[in-house]
Design a protein around this nucleic acid. Structure first.
Lengths: 198, 198, 198, 198
DNA sequence: TATGAATGAGACTTCATTCAT
DNA sequence: GATGAATGAAGTCTCATTCAT
């Protein structure tokens, strides 16, 4: 039984990864359950053995993806380095994810940001992405505690971090940037650091 | 003849305003041409006398909305004040728009950002929002010229401005903020200023 | 008043000609009243001042076109030549029309033949194309009277004449013929003559 | 697995038969996918599991119907009888089909002949009805080889055969004939034979 | 579990026709 | 007569979801 359960989880994850990619590429509405099934070489019917609906699938993707990203940030938070260095690492990490697993970030930009009705019920106050928010919160409050960051409203600081990072990745996805994405990391990080530092 | 033409333009604008609102509220895919027609108390068929398709409508909204926002920024640029003050005014202006005409900003967040395929052809390199980009560019380069801002890559600076502003408005739309939106203006503006100043 | 009436008839004819061409080119269903109006540089509404409906227009075209073709046949019938020669002239005439005013023949093939419901009421027993049928009837009965054609059922003879002529013109319209259309005239005429001669 | 595939083919054929009938009766444009689904007691959506579009369906009908008719002609060609007898049998066969399965012939007259745009791409040079053309070609060239038919251009001969046959069946469908359709067979056959014989 | 045929509501779009100006 | 904005029914096609096998 345990093995069976594990296999099922394995498959769920596989579906999540594929669906995340497709949603991120084509948008939530433009991706059909058939598209997902086809990409996975499985039947539509079977998809419903793992997720009760398209919305359900979208939500689980968000939770999972958020957890992955949060994990990366948590590792940074755990490091014994200055807040400035943490911010630099955060930006690099974020861009690294955007390069290696772009669907994670684009899923957020394309699906989560824009299909609020899908997430409305279960994601009030961003329950779905709570892990990420928490980690950013940790980074900020520790920075303040250490006297390295100015004390300010959480949300102001939060958007000052996430906004530029999300923005540059979005522009990258649109092919409007003239340099490789990673080359923007330093400048963005410096901007964020200057914006928040004590 | 001129009158008739003017009336038609008037009506187009009316449609654009209404459609912008609906798209911003419910998302592009979740808003039907029927919804728009109903809200305008007109027939679906007639809608197509003004816009040849739903996509076409979405594009024209973007161009128009972008022009409106750009106009606001241009007025700030024209003022004889310091760059710091300009940034403060920009943030306040942006939030002001978000409060009085939230559909303009949310249209950008919900429709433009997330339904890239709709805009792909005609909006390469953001032709659609070019006016806004231009004005931000002016603000930045003048700031640098006056020695008030550090010289840096345009895109880095651009997302450092637009990211936090967009972010806070988005969170506002999601009802997660604890204070009235405008109360975040000062802090956000200060963050952006510190991020970019020389 | 008379002048006015004449001008109206003139315009009707102009509309008929244009509509006939469009219907013949694109088919009845695929041609919109707007298409016709546009081609004539007039408004849709005005079209309805001349013809009460699309169907009405189609019928009037058929009557008019049929009269034109019948006129050509009548002239042949009136000639003082042998039936064989008449058949040769008929085929050449038919092909000549197909080359110079292809819409007349194609209208018959594309619209009349296939949109029977349009003509049903007013064209029972081919009232619409009665003139052509009559002239073919004259040619046949005179040929029999002169002992040059075998006496046979009218419809058998009728299709033996019209079938090959319509067929070759259709194939020409489809670009499957390898020689210029007119070069088929002799052979077709000879076939028809042999088929019917005494 | 094979069984399932077979069942699907079976159903496709069933759809083809029904759609052919409806198209032949009411014309291509006047027959809706809903009409077809209803006649088959199935859902519109499911229709699209078998044919990707209405046009696609029309094309497959043409190919299938053409194959059926060609089969009948092929059997005649294989018989060890004179060309004259073959022509007589061909006409009878054609009329027999028109009586028993009128939709096959009327589909050709009403849909194929008149909705050229539907078939344009995939049916250039009549690829769709190639089988029928081929068989007629065989009949003709063998007749010439045996010295029973005059040698003439293929297309001239082709329309001399198909024209009268199609014509009489069309008139039958229009209820303008005064005798039962089959009674025209002899005369038509005789006409065609005389038209082509050496 | 796995399959994919089946459902049916609903989306976008077209178009003949009307009517106020 | 002439215009073209307005109507709204209807058509084609899509797609989340179900269910018999």
């Amino acid at each position: 039984m345990k093995l069976k359960e594990k296999l099922k989880q394995e498959k769920k994850l596989q579906i999540i990864r594929t669906a995340c990619k497709l949603f991120a590429e084509k948008g939530y509405s433009n991706t059909t359950m058939h598209d997902i099934a086809k990409e996975l070489s499985m039947s539509v019917g079977n998809l419903y053995n793992y997720f009760s609906s398209k919305e359900e699938l979208a939500k689980e993707i968000m939770v999972t993806a958020s957890r992955w990203v949060a994990e990366r940030i948590r590792k940074i938070n755990e490091k014994d380095i200055s807040t400035k260095e943490k911010i630099y690492e955060l930006v690099k990490s974020f861009i690294d994810i955007a390069l290696k697993e772009p669907e994670l970030i684009h899923y957020f930009l394309r699906v989560f940001l824009s299909n609020r009705e899908v997430f409305e019920e279960d994601c009030l106050g961003f329950a779905c992405v709570g892990d990420v928010v928490t980690e950013i919160g940790v980074l900020l409050s520790e920075g303040v505690a250490k006297g390295e960051l100015r004390n300010q409203d959480f949300f102001s600081a939060f958007v000052t971090i996430m906004g530029p990072m999300g923005g540059i990745v979005f522009l990258h996805g649109e092919n409007v940037l003239q340099k490789p994405l990673m080359e923007y990391a330093e400048e963005i990080a410096e901007n964020i650091w200057r914006a928040l530092k004590a």
